[in-house]
Amino acid sequence: MSTKLFLQYPKCSTCKKAAKWLKDNSISVDSRDISVDNPTKEELAGWIKLSGLPISKFFNTSGKIYKEQNLKEKVKSASNEELIEILVSSGMVVKRPLIVSDKYVLVGFDEDEWSEQLK
């Protein structure tokens, strides 16, 4: 995968800011709306491994579903397999935006981190 995948939710203000940053920096990506094209179990498992981050970093902790289902407690005690099942249940549970390449995964929009990896 030489092209980077940009997973985002078009109505998310942080995703809009990230998309503008990508455009302003002439970084081409394949864009994917996470609310209609959910990551698969295989994708998420691979991305989590590649990122080197704990699985908890992939949860949208400010989202409605996260709060309604009290996922904060589940994330502390559930197995990775159970957590991946929760993440694939709805793209809205997944933290966004995400940039996925064959070498790294960026979770959330951190301009400094994105500059370092993408420029």
Rank of each mutant, 00 (worst) to 15 (best):
V105W: 04
V107K: 07
N70W: 06
K119A: 09
T3V: 14
V93N: 08
I48G: 04
F58Q: 03
K57N: 13
N60P: 02
D30C: 10
E43Y: 03
S31D: 02
E111D: 07
S79V: 14
T40F: 06
K41P: 08
K23V: 06
I27Q: 00
S28H: 04
K23C: 01
S31M: 06
G52S: 09
E68A: 13
V36T: 14
D110H: 07
L44N: 02
I27N: 00
S56T: 12
K95W: 05
V93M: 06
L98P: 07
N25V: 00
E73Q: 14
C15L: 05
V107E: 08
P39L: 03
V94K: 05
K67Y: 05
N25K: 06
P54V: 13
L44G: 03
E81A: 15
V107Q: 08
S2A: 15
I27V: 07
L87K: 04
A78G: 10
L53A: 12
Y9H: 15
K20A: 07
V29F: 02
Y104N: 14
D112Q: 13
N70L: 09
V94L: 12
Y66V: 06
F58H: 04
K20S: 04
F59I: 11
S28L: 07
K11N: 15
D37H: 15
D110I: 01
W47Y: 07
L5N: 12
K119D: 03
V93H: 03
S115W: 01
I48Q: 05
V105P: 06
K67R: 12
S28C: 06
D112L: 03
Y104T: 12
I27F: 00
V93E: 05
N25S: 00
D24C: 00
I48W: 03
V105D: 01
T61K: 14
S56L: 09
G91P: 09
T40I: 06
E82K: 15
P10Y: 13
L118M: 06
L106E: 09
S89Y: 10
T61P: 00
K103N: 14
N60C: 04
